[in-house]
Simulated assay, not measured.
Amino acid sequence: MSDSDLINLYSGRILQLAADIPHIGRLDTPQGTARRRSPLCGSTVTVDVIVKAGRVAAFAQDVRACALGQASAAVLGRVVIGRTLAELTEARDAVGAMLKGGPIPPAPFDSYEVLIPARDFKNRHASILLALDAVCEAMVEAEKAA
């Protein structure tokens, strides 16, 4: 990876998102919890959710990830409240497809476009998807508990 590749990958916008992640912490009594880890880099994200009427009513995340994983968690944190499992699963799949060269996910997940520079760095894709994987898993757990 050249210096210019690193500069493009870790843009100011990505670093700005990484520094301002919404919903940091843990919920006291979540209905669903999931912890996901990227074996390649060791990044981890733990997500707690409370679901009402099939939608995320409360959300918290403990993010111990690289700047790309943090930026992804920040994008998710800004739009997760009120989303259904189906919407979140579609978003996860759309972000994964975007990283493989597909289109930008539709609104409200279109801010993931900031991570397009990571397309060429396949070893970073798992870290970017951690928060999305974790929230989908936590939603499944919450729906089973309901």
Results as ranks from 00 to 15, higher is better:
Ser2Leu: 14
Gly69Lys: 01
Gln70Ile: 06
Gln61Cys: 09
Val140Lys: 10
Arg13His: 13
Lys52Ile: 13
His125Phe: 06
Pro22Ser: 03
Asp62Ile: 06
Pro22Asn: 06
Ala34Val: 06
Ser11Tyr: 09
Asp3Leu: 15
Ala131Met: 12
Ala34Ser: 11
Ala138Phe: 04
Met139Lys: 04
Asp120Ile: 14
Leu68Asn: 00
Val51Tyr: 01
Asp120Thr: 13
Tyr10Arg: 07
Val47Met: 11
Val80Ser: 03
Pro22Thr: 03
Ile7Gln: 08
Gln61Gly: 09
Arg37His: 11
Leu68Trp: 00
Asp62Phe: 05
Arg78Ala: 09
Gly69Asn: 00
Phe109Ile: 04
Pro22Arg: 03
Leu17Phe: 10
Ile24Thr: 13
Ile21Asp: 03
Ala142Asn: 04
Pro117Tyr: 12
Ala73Asp: 03
Cys41Gln: 12
Pro103Gln: 13
Leu17Met: 09
Ala86Lys: 10
Pro105Ile: 08
Asp93Ile: 14
Ala126Tyr: 08
Gly82Cys: 11
Ser2Gly: 15
Arg26His: 09
Arg83Ser: 05
Ser11Ala: 09
Glu90Ile: 12
Ile21Met: 04
Arg124Tyr: 08
Ser4Asn: 11
Gly32Glu: 00
Arg36Asn: 08
Gly96Trp: 06
Ala73Cys: 10
Arg13Val: 14
Thr46Gln: 13
Gly42Tyr: 02
Arg119Lys: 15
Phe109Asp: 00
Ala91Thr: 05
Thr89Lys: 15
